[in-house]
Nucleic acid binder design. Structure first.
Length: 118
DNA sequence: CCACTGACGAGTG
DNA sequence: GCACTCGCCAGTG
């Protein structure tokens, strides 16, 4: 294929996040084939032009929080709520509820011990 | 080349 | 849950 740079691969993954769902930086990095490069994902999104069609606002940190500072964070919050996503007082989003599950919806999620919970 | 920073994450106490 | 450390890597001075 084309000589896609690291950033392009990240943007491609972000574009696949469905409306009304969210993903974490680490998750995006992993799906882009860059495990452990979560920081670079943040850097890549930061470099996006304002008019980009990339839904950057659907990317949150591992705790499900908006990781931006006051100003930009408020903008992201609005975009999220506009999609029907509930944002906490602490700029927090429920990952179990809105987290994007690539490859279709699975009802149970794996616990780190291998058990299932709902 | 070195030091520091930053939309992060996992591990430890 | 909080504070701290280390790993990752691009950009900046």
């Amino acid at each position: 294929m084309k000589g896609q740079g690291t950033y392009d691969r990240i943007y491609t993954v972000v574009r696949h996040i469905p409306r009304g769902k969210v993903a974490t930086y680490g998750q995006v990095a992993r799906l882009a084939g860059l495990p452990g490069h979560a920081r670079q994902v943040g850097y890549a999104l930061h470099a996006l032009p304002e008019r980009s069609t990339v839904p950057w606002h659907r990317v949150l940190n591992g705790r499900g929080e908006i990781s931006l500072r006051a100003g930009a964070g408020e903008r992201q919050r609005q975009l999220l709520e506009k999609e029907g996503i509930v944002v906490d007082d602490q700029d927090r989003i429920s990952l179990p509820r809105y987290g994007w599950l690539p490859e279709g919806d699975v009802d149970g999620q794996e616990d780190k011990d291998g058990d299932y919970f709902r």
